[in-house]
């Protein structure tokens, strides 16, 4: 897949079909990848595709001017489609390079599995359904399914839904919805005071770095409501209540636009389980409006469109 990508990307740049390639390169931290955005052919050799390509690159087309050759996984492609529906990006300005995705490794989970800091691993290879982790003088085999992000379980669209070039063969969906929703279901089983305590604890940690918002392709407002001070909706600093309100409003704003890529949660430096909120909203939107983000290219954005059959139980 990686070679195919390099070949296609090189061709796209050479033929002038795109101004930039937006893909993944190796990061400077062990086993991490990093967005690689380039207009130089010599950088193409550094493109990678491996089980660590976590970033959702569809965050970039709204910001980078010019035609882009963009690498997307299944979930990322849905973000991109959603942006097209909102007229935030133009399909003709992109050559979409689709990566059929078997799941992305959650470095934290992997660390827990090998019982050591990921720093201590020398090499990690994927062999079949396992990851082989070379440690100092030892080798550990970890089932791949035990170290991928929660969002990857039950991913119904691992193969991009929108692409110009598919870089590998289609991947069949993992039907493990329950595992994907495990944390959320566990949470829903707790009572209201416990839930309140839990979110209070979580949102007390928030430092308002806005990484959750800034990495989110669906957060495309030119001026976020938290950055407006007339009127001032919430304080610019973090009481936990205001942090919670910020996140709840963000969740509502991206409802129907969230592809459950999980970048908000992965990016959060203080480990707030933000994806639970987003995932729950995905369920709600699907249940209420039968809408799944970025699945149907021709669908209207759910909250800018009205259908006579829309549920209206809330109007009483």
């Amino acid at each position: 897949m990686e070679n195919r990508l390099k070949e296609e990307a090189r061709k796209l740049l050479k033929e002038g079909k795109v101004d930039y390639i937006v893909g993944y390169g190796n990061g400077t931290v062990k086993f991490r990848t990093s967005p690689l955005i380039t207009n130089k052919e010599e950088d193409i050799e550094s493109l990678v595709i491996n089980p660590f390509i976590a970033n959702n690159l569809s965050r970039y087309p709204t910001e980078i001017k010019g035609k882009l050759g963009i690498v997307v996984k299944g979930c990322d492609s849905r973000s991109l489609v959603s942006l097209m529906q909102d007229n935030k990006v133009n399909r003709d300005d992109m050559v979409i390079l689709g990566v059929p995705c078997e799941g992305v490794v959650d470095i934290k989970k992997l660390g827990e599995q090998i019982g050591a800091d990921i720093d201590q691993a020398k090499e990690i290879d994927k062999e079949g359904d396992n990851l082989i982790v070379q440690m100092d003088g030892s080798k550990k085999t970890v089932p791949f399914r035990d170290v991928i992000f929660d969002k990857c379980f039950g991913c119904e669209y691992p193969t991009p839904l929108e692409y110009d070039i598919l870089l590998g063969s289609e991947v069949s969906p993992r039907i493990e919805i329950e595992k994907s929703l495990k944390k959320i279901k566990e949470f829903e089983d707790t009572d209201a005071p416990e839930r309140w305590r839990y979110w209070k604890e979580q949102f007390s940690k928030c430092i308002r770095c806005y990484a959750c918002r800034n990495v989110c392709p669906a957060c495309f407002c030119e001026r976020c409501f938290v950055d407006v001070n007339i009127p001032q909706w919430i304080t610019t600093y973090g009481s936990w209540q205001d942090n919670l309100v910020f996140q709840l409003i963000r969740t509502l704003h991206v409802a129907g636009r969230c592809s459950d890529c999980g970048e908000c949660e992965r990016s959060c430096p203080v480990g707030i389980p933000l994806r639970s909120l987003q995932r729950k909203m995905v369920e709600e939107v699907k249940g209420l409006f039968n809408h799944e983000t970025g699945v149907d290219k021709d669908a209207f954005p759910v909250f800018t469109h009205y259908e006579a059959t829309d549920p209206e139980e809330f109007i009483k």
Partner: peptide, 13 residues
């Protein structure tokens, strides 16, 4: 700065 998300993580940590 192209790939930077312009969040505040680097400054806050």
């Amino acid at each position: 700065s192209k790939k930077c998300m312009a969040c505040g993580i680097c400054t806050y940590v």
